[in-house]
Simulated assay, not measured.
Amino acid sequence: MSVELPPAIAAYFRADRDEPAAVARCFTPEGVVKDEGRLHRGPEAIAAWKRQASAAYEYTSEPISVEPDGERLIVTAHVVGNFPGSPVTLRYGFTLEGAHIALLEIAP
Rank of each mutant, 00 (worst) to 15 (best):
A56K: 15
I106R: 02
A99S: 13
Y59D: 06
D18C: 10
R17G: 14
R17F: 08
Y57G: 06
V79S: 05
S65K: 08
A99I: 06
T28F: 07
V3Y: 02
K50A: 11
E19F: 12
S86D: 07
I74W: 08
Y92N: 07
D69R: 10
L39S: 14
T60K: 08
E67Y: 12
R17D: 13
S61C: 12
A11K: 04
T76I: 07
N82M: 05
R25A: 15
E19T: 14
N82T: 04
S61K: 08
A15Q: 04
V23E: 01
A11F: 01
R14M: 13
D16Q: 08
D35L: 03
E30A: 13
D16L: 08
S54E: 14
L103H: 13
G42K: 06
S2C: 10
F83V: 03
V79W: 01
A21R: 06
E4G: 13
P20M: 02
P68W: 09
D16T: 04
E44V: 13
R38S: 13
A10R: 14
P7M: 06
A77S: 06
E4W: 09
A55E: 15
A45C: 08
P68L: 09
A99D: 15
D35F: 09
E67V: 09
K50E: 12
R41F: 06
E62M: 10
P84A: 10
R38A: 14
Q52R: 15
V80D: 11
V80Y: 06
P108W: 09
V33S: 04
L103W: 11
F27H: 00
A22T: 06
F94R: 00
L90A: 12
T76D: 04
I74G: 00
G31Y: 06
H78P: 08
A22L: 03
R38L: 14
L104E: 03
E36I: 12
A56M: 12
R91C: 01
I101F: 02
R25Q: 12
A10K: 14
T95A: 09
F83L: 02
D18I: 09
T89A: 12
P29E: 11
